[in-house]
Amino acid sequence: MSKKVQVQARINGEEVEFLCEPRQSLLEVLRDELGLTGSKEGCNNGNCGACNVIMDGVLVNSCLVLGVEIQGKEITTIEGLAGPEKLHPLQQKFLEYAALQCGICTPGFIVASKALLDKNPHPTEQEVRYWLAGNLCRCTGYDKIVRAVLAAAEVNHEERR
């Protein structure tokens, strides 16, 4: 019924152009059109945070953004965090602290944590917990996740970028 729309955006530093239907969420566009399957679909209604991406510097649930809405915007997904040489400090600390079990919530937690550290490089434990209140982990590994984020915050700010 509705025609596909052409959209241009910058995703993980690269200019991309794609066609999508208005009803496709940004999450669906990332996963199904662009092959970026790091962002996960959990609840698909804004409660779980597994699909978190950063849009023009703001943390959002990509299931609650339409693909057509990202025209001209800059998106960072989990795939945009690590450099070619090594993991992002958050990823490294999540591994070191075993801050994951099944792993489905992990990309969302890491992207959300990146948005936090970009804004507040040295958060308190309480700030980390409140910030991550919109991310659900069904394996209930919250404590290790919080410790991993606090440890990543200790890593030199320069190194983290």
Binding site: G46, N52, N61, L64, A112
Partner: peptide
């Protein structure tokens, strides 16, 4: 209202 992700939108 909601978490940080919701407040962003």
């Amino acid at each position: 209202i909601g978490g940080i992700q919701i407040q962003g939108r």
